Amino acid sequence: MRHLVPAEASFRLLPRLEGLKITPQSSAPGRPRQGTIDMLFFSGRLYIYSLKSFESLLNYRERMISDAEDLYDEVEQLGIFTNMDILRTRVGNNRRYLRKIAVIQSLGYYRDKDFLKRLHQINEAKGWNIQFDNGQITFTEDTIDTVLTVLQNKRLHSELTHQDFDVPSATQVP
Score class of each variant (00 low, 15 high):
residue 45 R to P: 00
residue 45 R to D: 08
residue 45 R to T: 10
residue 45 R to G: 04
residue 46 L to D: 01
residue 46 L to W: 06
residue 46 L to G: 03
residue 46 L to T: 04
residue 46 L to K: 04
residue 46 L to C: 07
residue 47 Y to G: 01
residue 47 Y to V: 01
residue 47 Y to S: 00
residue 47 Y to P: 01
residue 47 Y to Q: 06
residue 47 Y to F: 11
residue 48 I to E: 02
residue 48 I to M: 03
residue 49 Y to C: 07
residue 49 Y to H: 08
residue 50 S to H: 05
residue 50 S to N: 10
residue 50 S to K: 03
residue 50 S to M: 04
residue 51 L to V: 04
residue 51 L to F: 07
residue 51 L to N: 05
residue 51 L to R: 09
residue 51 L to P: 05
residue 52 K to W: 07
residue 52 K to V: 10
residue 52 K to M: 07
residue 53 S to I: 03
residue 53 S to P: 00
residue 53 S to N: 15
residue 53 S to T: 08
residue 53 S to V: 02
residue 54 F to T: 11
residue 54 F to E: 03
residue 54 F to W: 08
residue 55 E to F: 15
residue 55 E to V: 10
residue 55 E to Y: 15
residue 55 E to D: 13
residue 56 S to C: 08
residue 56 S to Y: 13
residue 57 L to D: 07
residue 57 L to P: 00
residue 57 L to S: 09
residue 58 L to I: 06
residue 58 L to G: 00
residue 59 N to Q: 13
residue 59 N to E: 11
residue 59 N to P: 03
residue 60 Y to Q: 13
residue 60 Y to F: 14
residue 60 Y to L: 10
residue 60 Y to H: 14
residue 61 R to N: 08
residue 61 R to F: 03
residue 62 E to P: 03
residue 62 E to T: 09
residue 62 E to A: 12
residue 62 E to M: 08
residue 63 R to G: 12
residue 63 R to F: 12
residue 64 M to T: 08
residue 65 I to T: 06
residue 66 S to R: 15
residue 66 S to L: 14
residue 69 E to H: 13
residue 70 D to P: 00
residue 71 L to Y: 06
residue 71 L to R: 01
residue 71 L to V: 01
residue 71 L to S: 02
residue 72 Y to D: 03
residue 72 Y to F: 05
residue 72 Y to K: 00
residue 72 Y to V: 04
residue 72 Y to M: 01
residue 72 Y to R: 02
residue 73 D to R: 13
residue 73 D to W: 06
residue 73 D to K: 14
residue 73 D to A: 14
residue 73 D to S: 13
residue 74 E to I: 05
residue 74 E to V: 02
